[in-house]
Design a protein around this nucleic acid. Sequence first.
RNA 1: GGGCCGUUAGCUCAGUUGGCAGAGCAUCUGACUUUUAAUCAGGCGGUCCUGGGUUCGAGUCCCAGACGGCUCACCA
Length: 494
Amino acid sequence: MSHPIDELTQQKLNKLAALRSAGIEPFPYGYHRSHTAVEAVNTAQNNKDALLTQEFRVNVAGRIMAKRGMGKTVFMDLRDGSGKIQLFFRINNFSEAKFNTVKDIDIGDILGAQGKLFLTRSGEPTVEVSDFTLLAKSLQPLPEKWHGLVDVEKRYRQRYLDLISNPDVKKIFETRSKTISAIRDFLNKRDFLEVETPVLQPEAGGATARPFITHHNTLDRDFFLRIALELHLKRLIIGGFDKVYEIGRIFRNEGISVKHNPEFTMLESYETYADYQDVMKTVEDLVSSVCQQVHGSMKVEYNGQTIDFTPPWRRLEMRQAVMQYAGLDYEQFPDTASLKAEMTARKMQFDPMRERGKLIDEIVSTYVDPQLIQPTFLYDYPIEMSPLAKKKPGSDHIVERFEAYCGGMEIANAFTELNDPIDQRQRFMKQMEDREKGDDEAQKMDEDFVLAMEHGMPPTGGLGIGIDRLVMLLTNQTSIREVILFPAQREKID
RNA sequence: GGGCCGUUAGCUCAGUUGGCAGAGCAUCUGACUUUUAAUCAGGCGGUCCUGGGUUCGAGUCCCAGACGGCUCACCA
């Protein structure tokens, strides 16, 4: 796509030509920095007295963010990945020809500068530049210096401009990166093995969601982009790894909202000989220690509330939660018909096509989820919504499953994994029945997975954590797009 | 998909009852050798999201559409 060359770009192209004809290459190949901006600032501040008697020379490089001409001197703000430092150019330090090229350096250009550190009258650490090198000429103007880039659409479509002009945004993504590192550290220290499993799959299983479909040309068949990591990680448990995890991209062909992006990042971990009670401890330990590592505290501000991740978290049986927040005991309505009748009597809204499990899910998301601001484990789920979880001992309709809620959002989902291949096959059969009844989100039979399980799968505790939502909590963002660098957008045709 | 809101200079935003398209920053010219949202003087810069309609006249009113935000629904 070509862009019209507007006046501002033309002016910069003219400067670029002027630099070239003065023998300056506007896009050279490298530059040796001696200090980052922050290192240079710290050097100046830690040697205030010595600066007067001794030369501290530095080479810094970065983007010019501001330029203030003052007659025969020029000040610039230079920013690199670490922060900002001020540059000071005075005519005395240059030939007239060289000083004239300073006017061809624009805001937005990438510049290398060499010189000695000093403090200005107001105490600002500054490099008195003795030589400078243009490292890349910018041909487009930067957003407004004071308000930054505000237009949300432009912020997402041209995220680099957002990152350049909005330091808070940059911080969010630094926090995201630190969060993921901290998760890896936590799991690696506990002897979990990080693995990678296929994104392209012949069947998309392990969750209830519509998949994306793609096509392999050589094999001439369709593949699905994975909607979960689960079934392959369990195959690895069967294969003999005691503890595995994967942090990977998941794709779900569903609606886009403030809490949903079509591609998002999921952590799944599986630990042999653990049950869901063990996994609860793992989750509260993991999230609280990640928060501690990222923020230096186990508390965060989220959406006007203080959330405290300090273990232990509240544990709330799902049946009790529904009784407490919706005033309904679903155990008294053991089939779809009786539950529907009761919900109708209570004037609750629901989708009449739904089966009992989905109806309970609807009640939970309407009445319970929004109430769970402080970290809470909701546990013991109806079997209908959990075809991969193991039944509670002595129960034929409750499974050992929990979800962790925080700030009204689901952040984790875990269960004692079903490892009985006969039961697993029956659960898949039940899902297939639901699918034939019109539930196109019901899971498909995965014979290859059942075959794996028939070889013997140890008792295992499994866990999934939505990384994007966890990062939202840790960065006080209420939209998932603010924690995904390039969120899904429609194609812009202009 | 429904509802509400938004789209005006490169950026941030004004724009009154329908009557000549505005400001700040950026940019350009000039002044200024410790400024820092530098300051001062002057200049350039517009498909008012797109397409229709009403009107003597539309940035402004009406209809349709595009894109975005919020929200409800869907969806873990």
